[in-house]
Design a protein around this nucleic acid. Sequence first.
DNA 1: CGCTCAATTGACTTTTACGTAAATGCCATG
DNA 2: CATGGCATTTACGTAAAAGTCAATTGAGCG
Lengths: 129, 129
Amino acid sequence: MMREYYSITELTREFDVSTRTLRFYEDEGLVQPVRRGRTRLFRPSDRHLIRQIMRGKRLGFSINEIREIIQMYKEPPGEIGQLNLMIKRIEEKREDLRQKRRDLEETLAELDQAEESCVERLVELGVNT
Amino acid sequence: MMREYYSITELTREFDVSTRTLRFYEDEGLVQPVRRGRTRLFRPSDRHLIRQIMRGKRLGFSINEIREIIQMYKEPPGEIGQLNLMIKRIEEKREDLRQKRRDLEETLAELDQAEESCVERLVELGVNT
DNA sequence: CGCTCAATTGACTTTTACGTAAATGCCATG
DNA sequence: CATGGCATTTACGTAAAAGTCAATTGAGCG
Protein backbone atom coordinates (compact mmCIF):
# COMPACT_ATOMS: atom_id res chain seq x y z
CA MET A 1 0.00 0.00 0.00
CA MET A 2 1.19 3.43 -0.95
CA ARG A 3 0.85 5.70 2.08
CA GLU A 4 -0.26 9.21 1.39
CA TYR A 5 1.73 10.96 4.08
CA TYR A 6 4.55 10.29 6.49
CA SER A 7 5.19 12.19 9.69
CA ILE A 8 8.57 13.68 10.34
CA THR A 9 9.35 11.24 13.14
CA GLU A 10 8.45 8.24 11.02
CA LEU A 11 11.01 9.34 8.51
CA THR A 12 13.63 10.14 11.14
CA ARG A 13 13.30 6.53 12.32
CA GLU A 14 13.33 5.06 8.85
CA PHE A 15 16.43 6.94 7.75
CA ASP A 16 18.06 7.31 11.14
CA VAL A 17 18.39 11.08 11.03
CA SER A 18 17.11 13.81 13.34
CA THR A 19 14.15 16.09 12.79
CA ARG A 20 16.64 18.90 12.70
CA THR A 21 18.24 17.29 9.68
CA LEU A 22 14.97 16.90 7.78
CA ARG A 23 14.01 20.49 8.53
CA PHE A 24 17.44 21.54 7.41
CA TYR A 25 16.88 19.75 4.10
CA GLU A 26 13.63 21.61 3.77
CA ASP A 27 15.36 24.93 4.42
CA GLU A 28 17.84 23.94 1.76
CA GLY A 29 14.99 23.31 -0.64
CA LEU A 30 15.76 19.63 -1.08
CA VAL A 31 12.30 18.54 0.04
CA GLN A 32 9.01 20.44 0.24
CA PRO A 33 6.59 18.61 2.50
CA VAL A 34 3.08 20.05 2.51
CA ARG A 35 1.62 21.50 5.70
CA ARG A 36 -1.43 20.79 7.73
CA GLY A 37 -1.42 23.80 9.98
CA ARG A 38 2.20 24.00 10.94
CA THR A 39 2.99 20.29 10.85
CA ARG A 40 4.86 18.86 7.93
CA LEU A 41 3.36 16.04 5.90
CA PHE A 42 5.88 14.20 3.79
CA ARG A 43 4.61 12.55 0.66
CA PRO A 44 6.07 9.45 -0.96
CA SER A 45 7.96 11.68 -3.37
CA ASP A 46 9.56 13.48 -0.43
CA ARG A 47 10.45 10.14 1.06
CA HIS A 48 12.08 9.10 -2.18
CA LEU A 49 14.02 12.34 -2.25
CA ILE A 50 15.29 11.70 1.25
CA ARG A 51 16.40 8.27 0.14
CA GLN A 52 18.37 9.90 -2.68
CA ILE A 53 19.83 12.45 -0.31
CA MET A 54 21.06 9.73 2.04
CA ARG A 55 22.63 7.90 -0.86
CA GLY A 56 24.38 11.07 -1.92
CA LYS A 57 25.62 11.63 1.60
CA ARG A 58 27.06 8.14 1.86
CA LEU A 59 28.89 8.80 -1.38
CA GLY A 60 30.44 11.93 0.10
CA PHE A 61 28.52 14.50 -1.90
CA SER A 62 27.91 17.89 -0.33
CA ILE A 63 24.43 19.30 0.02
CA ASN A 64 25.04 21.46 -3.02
CA GLU A 65 26.17 18.52 -5.09
CA ILE A 66 23.16 16.55 -3.94
CA ARG A 67 20.96 19.45 -4.91
CA GLU A 68 22.47 19.40 -8.39
CA ILE A 69 21.97 15.67 -8.72
CA ILE A 70 18.36 15.96 -7.62
CA GLN A 71 17.80 18.61 -10.26
CA MET A 72 18.92 16.06 -12.80
CA TYR A 73 16.31 13.56 -11.75
CA LYS A 74 13.54 16.05 -12.34
CA GLU A 75 11.60 16.59 -15.55
CA PRO A 76 13.92 17.56 -18.37
CA PRO A 77 13.65 21.23 -19.38
CA GLY A 78 11.80 22.27 -22.51
CA GLU A 79 14.46 24.34 -24.17
CA ILE A 80 17.14 22.84 -26.36
CA GLY A 81 20.00 24.85 -24.90
CA GLN A 82 18.97 23.89 -21.40
CA LEU A 83 18.65 20.27 -22.43
CA ASN A 84 22.13 20.16 -23.87
CA LEU A 85 23.50 21.85 -20.79
CA MET A 86 21.76 19.35 -18.56
CA ILE A 87 23.09 16.42 -20.58
CA LYS A 88 26.57 17.86 -20.20
CA ARG A 89 26.13 18.21 -16.45
CA ILE A 90 24.82 14.68 -16.16
CA GLU A 91 27.81 13.38 -18.07
CA GLU A 92 30.11 15.25 -15.69
CA LYS A 93 28.46 13.75 -12.66
CA ARG A 94 28.72 10.32 -14.20
CA GLU A 95 32.41 10.82 -14.76
CA ASP A 96 32.67 11.87 -11.14
CA LEU A 97 30.92 8.68 -10.09
CA ARG A 98 33.13 6.55 -12.30
CA GLN A 99 36.16 8.07 -10.59
CA LYS A 100 34.62 7.18 -7.26
CA ARG A 101 34.09 3.67 -8.51
CA ARG A 102 37.75 3.36 -9.45
CA ASP A 103 38.75 4.71 -6.03
CA LEU A 104 36.38 2.27 -4.43
CA GLU A 105 37.69 -0.76 -6.29
CA GLU A 106 41.28 0.18 -5.52
CA THR A 107 40.53 0.64 -1.85
CA LEU A 108 38.67 -2.66 -1.72
CA ALA A 109 41.62 -4.38 -3.40
CA GLU A 110 44.04 -2.94 -0.86
CA LEU A 111 41.81 -3.97 1.99
CA ASP A 112 41.62 -7.48 0.54
CA GLN A 113 45.40 -7.57 0.55
CA ALA A 114 45.55 -6.24 4.09
CA GLU A 115 43.18 -8.90 5.30
CA GLU A 116 45.19 -11.57 3.54
CA SER A 117 48.33 -10.40 5.31
CA CYS A 118 46.51 -10.65 8.61
CA VAL A 119 45.28 -14.14 7.88
CA GLU A 120 48.77 -15.25 6.83
CA ARG A 121 50.17 -13.83 10.01
CA LEU A 122 47.53 -15.69 11.98
CA VAL A 123 48.50 -18.94 10.29
CA GLU A 124 52.17 -18.34 11.12
CA LEU A 125 51.30 -17.75 14.75
CA GLY A 126 48.98 -20.72 14.81
CA VAL A 127 51.74 -22.96 13.44
CA ASN A 128 54.28 -21.76 15.98
CA THR A 129 52.22 -22.41 19.10
CA MET B 1 63.02 6.12 -11.85
CA MET B 2 62.10 6.09 -8.20
CA ARG B 3 62.76 9.55 -6.80
CA GLU B 4 64.11 9.72 -3.31
CA TYR B 5 62.35 12.86 -2.16
CA TYR B 6 59.58 15.17 -3.25
CA SER B 7 59.19 18.78 -2.15
CA ILE B 8 55.94 19.97 -0.69
CA THR B 9 55.11 22.12 -3.68
CA GLU B 10 55.72 19.29 -6.12
CA LEU B 11 53.12 17.27 -4.28
CA THR B 12 50.67 20.15 -3.99
CA ARG B 13 50.82 20.39 -7.78
CA GLU B 14 50.54 16.66 -8.36
CA PHE B 15 47.54 16.23 -6.09
CA ASP B 16 46.08 19.69 -6.48
CA VAL B 17 46.01 20.53 -2.80
CA SER B 18 47.52 23.40 -0.82
CA THR B 19 50.63 23.26 1.33
CA ARG B 20 48.36 24.01 4.24
CA THR B 21 46.53 20.78 3.55
CA LEU B 22 49.66 18.65 3.45
CA ARG B 23 50.89 20.21 6.68
CA PHE B 24 47.49 19.56 8.16
CA TYR B 25 47.82 15.90 7.24
CA GLU B 26 51.21 15.87 8.89
CA ASP B 27 49.76 17.41 12.06
CA GLU B 28 47.11 14.71 11.94
CA GLY B 29 49.82 12.08 11.77
CA LEU B 30 48.78 10.77 8.36
CA VAL B 31 52.19 11.42 6.80
CA GLN B 32 55.60 11.92 8.38
CA PRO B 33 57.95 13.51 5.90
CA VAL B 34 61.54 13.72 7.09
CA ARG B 35 63.18 17.09 7.60
CA ARG B 36 66.25 18.75 6.28
CA GLY B 37 66.43 21.72 8.60
CA ARG B 38 62.83 22.85 8.64
CA THR B 39 61.94 21.82 5.13
CA ARG B 40 59.89 18.73 4.60
CA LEU B 41 61.15 15.98 2.38
CA PHE B 42 58.41 13.62 1.28
CA ARG B 43 59.47 10.10 0.42
CA PRO B 44 57.74 7.83 -2.11
CA SER B 45 55.93 6.17 0.78
CA ASP B 46 54.57 9.56 1.88
CA ARG B 47 53.50 10.20 -1.67
CA HIS B 48 51.69 6.92 -1.77
CA LEU B 49 49.97 7.75 1.50
CA ILE B 50 48.79 11.04 0.07
CA ARG B 51 47.41 9.18 -2.91
CA GLN B 52 45.47 6.97 -0.52
CA ILE B 53 44.26 9.97 1.46
CA MET B 54 42.95 11.64 -1.68
CA ARG B 55 41.15 8.47 -2.65
CA GLY B 56 39.55 8.33 0.76
CA LYS B 57 38.50 11.95 0.51
CA ARG B 58 36.85 11.42 -2.85
CA LEU B 59 34.93 8.55 -1.32
CA GLY B 60 33.67 10.85 1.42
CA PHE B 61 35.66 9.41 4.31
CA SER B 62 36.57 11.72 7.17
CA ILE B 63 40.15 12.19 8.24
CA ASN B 64 39.57 9.80 11.12
CA GLU B 65 38.16 7.14 8.85
CA ILE B 66 41.07 7.61 6.50
CA ARG B 67 43.42 7.26 9.42
CA GLU B 68 41.77 3.97 10.32
CA ILE B 69 42.00 2.69 6.78
CA ILE B 70 45.66 3.63 6.59
CA GLN B 71 46.28 1.70 9.78
CA MET B 72 44.88 -1.33 8.03
CA TYR B 73 47.38 -1.08 5.21
CA LYS B 74 50.28 -1.20 7.62
CA GLU B 75 52.11 -4.25 8.86
CA PRO B 76 49.73 -6.61 10.63
CA PRO B 77 50.15 -6.69 14.42
CA GLY B 78 51.92 -9.56 16.13
CA GLU B 79 49.32 -10.48 18.68
CA ILE B 80 46.47 -12.83 17.93
CA GLY B 81 43.77 -10.75 19.63
CA GLN B 82 44.90 -7.66 17.76
CA LEU B 83 44.97 -9.59 14.51
CA ASN B 84 41.42 -10.81 14.92
CA LEU B 85 40.29 -7.33 15.85
CA MET B 86 41.95 -5.91 12.78
CA ILE B 87 40.38 -8.52 10.54
CA LYS B 88 37.00 -7.58 11.98
CA ARG B 89 37.62 -3.89 11.35
CA ILE B 90 38.73 -4.57 7.81
CA GLU B 91 35.59 -6.57 7.17
CA GLU B 92 33.50 -3.66 8.49
CA LYS B 93 35.19 -1.20 6.19
CA ARG B 94 34.65 -3.52 3.29
CA GLU B 95 30.96 -3.73 4.07
CA ASP B 96 30.93 0.05 4.19
CA LEU B 97 32.54 0.17 0.77
CA ARG B 98 30.12 -2.38 -0.63
CA GLN B 99 27.25 -0.18 0.53
CA LYS B 100 28.88 2.75 -1.21
CA ARG B 101 29.15 0.62 -4.32
CA ARG B 102 25.45 -0.15 -4.24
CA ASP B 103 24.67 3.55 -3.74
CA LEU B 104 26.97 4.37 -6.60
CA GLU B 105 25.42 1.90 -9.02
CA GLU B 106 21.92 3.09 -8.15
CA THR B 107 22.87 6.70 -8.64
CA LEU B 108 24.54 5.91 -11.95
CA ALA B 109 21.43 4.05 -13.07
CA GLU B 110 19.21 7.00 -12.20
CA LEU B 111 21.52 9.37 -14.00
CA ASP B 112 21.45 7.10 -17.05
CA GLN B 113 17.68 7.32 -16.97
CA ALA B 114 17.77 11.08 -16.55
CA GLU B 115 20.05 11.44 -19.54
CA GLU B 116 17.82 9.20 -21.61
CA SER B 117 14.82 11.38 -20.77
CA CYS B 118 16.79 14.40 -21.91
CA VAL B 119 17.76 12.75 -25.17
CA GLU B 120 14.19 11.66 -25.82
CA ARG B 121 13.02 15.19 -25.18
CA LEU B 122 15.63 16.45 -27.58
CA VAL B 123 14.40 14.06 -30.27
CA GLU B 124 10.82 15.25 -29.74
CA LEU B 125 11.88 18.83 -30.12
CA GLY B 126 14.03 18.01 -33.10
CA VAL B 127 11.10 16.27 -34.79
CA ASN B 128 8.73 19.15 -34.14
CA THR B 129 10.85 21.87 -35.69
C1' DC C 1 77.79 38.99 2.94
C1' DG C 2 73.45 40.52 1.57
C1' DC C 3 69.48 39.62 -1.13
C1' DT C 4 65.62 37.13 -2.62
C1' DC C 5 62.21 33.85 -2.65
C1' DA C 6 60.25 29.76 -1.30
C1' DA C 7 59.01 27.37 2.98
C1' DT C 8 57.53 27.34 7.73
C1' DT C 9 54.79 28.47 11.76
C1' DG C 10 51.02 30.05 14.40
C1' DA C 11 46.97 32.46 14.88
C1' DC C 12 42.72 33.53 13.28
C1' DT C 13 38.79 32.87 9.96
C1' DT C 14 35.55 30.38 7.10
C1' DT C 15 32.31 26.90 5.42
C1' DT C 16 29.45 22.91 5.90
C1' DA C 17 26.11 20.29 8.16
C1' DC C 18 23.98 19.86 11.36
C1' DG C 19 23.30 19.86 17.24
C1' DT C 20 21.08 21.91 21.10
C1' DA C 21 18.25 24.78 23.95
C1' DA C 22 14.29 27.64 24.91
C1' DA C 23 9.81 29.01 24.24
C1' DT C 24 5.58 27.81 22.41
C1' DG C 25 1.69 25.29 19.66
C1' DC C 26 -1.43 21.44 18.95
C1' DC C 27 -4.21 17.77 20.47
C1' DA C 28 -5.71 13.40 22.45
C1' DT C 29 -6.40 11.18 26.84
C1' DG C 30 -7.48 10.40 31.56
C1' DC D 1 -8.50 20.98 32.30
C1' DA D 2 -4.05 19.63 32.82
C1' DT D 3 -0.75 16.48 31.40
C1' DG D 4 2.07 14.19 28.13
C1' DG D 5 3.93 13.90 23.90
C1' DC D 6 5.25 15.29 19.50
C1' DA D 7 5.97 19.57 16.43
C1' DT D 8 7.58 24.06 15.37
C1' DT D 9 10.40 28.31 15.33
C1' DT D 10 14.28 31.03 16.50
C1' DA D 11 18.69 31.51 17.84
C1' DC D 12 23.08 30.31 19.00
C1' DG D 13 26.77 26.60 19.18
C1' DT D 14 30.17 23.41 17.28
C1' DA D 15 33.37 20.05 15.02
C1' DA D 16 35.89 19.04 10.87
C1' DA D 17 38.78 20.50 7.29
C1' DA D 18 40.90 23.43 5.56
C1' DG D 19 41.79 28.85 3.92
C1' DT D 20 44.18 33.08 4.89
C1' DC D 21 47.44 36.14 6.68
C1' DA D 22 51.50 37.83 8.95
C1' DA D 23 55.83 37.21 10.71
C1' DT D 24 59.98 34.44 10.32
C1' DT D 25 63.46 31.47 8.61
C1' DG D 26 66.75 29.48 5.81
C1' DA D 27 68.96 28.12 1.52
C1' DG D 28 71.09 29.29 -2.59
C1' DC D 29 73.55 32.51 -5.34
C1' DG D 30 75.99 36.41 -7.30
